[in-house]
Amino acid sequence: MESLIKIVSDIQTEEAIRFVESPGSGGVVTFIGTVRNQTKGKPVLKLFFESYEPMAILEMEKIAQQAFEQWDVQRIAIIHAIGEKLPGEEVVVIAVAAPHRGAAFSACQYAIDTLKETVPIWKQEFFEDGAVWVAAHP
């Protein structure tokens, strides 16, 4: 049960997949989050991500730990990007390797859902007419 947890400027998807692959795994499930080019029909020019990095790393480690406790998974990689990201660019990658696919799918879904709820990372959306911090207001 090993994990790779990182916050980086540029995501390398292959790094996450290479890290989790092992001969004992029957499969790798990967989630890649990318920048959508519109929000409610308004074109998005770019996103800006910032994090409270030391706490974000701790919270990402907790997610990996919880996944190891709940499912039979062997390795997990969680890598999140910060800084400016353009539409189509990768902002988060989660890779999970397990002996059987069910555990890998479940753990990967748990990891991305929980990351959105607990990891201190914020994004600002830039439109033609200004910028907003996503989900800040009700």
Binding site: G33, K116, E117, T118, I121, W122
Partner: peptide
């Protein structure tokens, strides 16, 4: 640390 609504991912 003051943590406003999260929006990672």
């Amino acid at each position: 640390a003051v943590i406003p609504p999260l929006s990672g991912g």
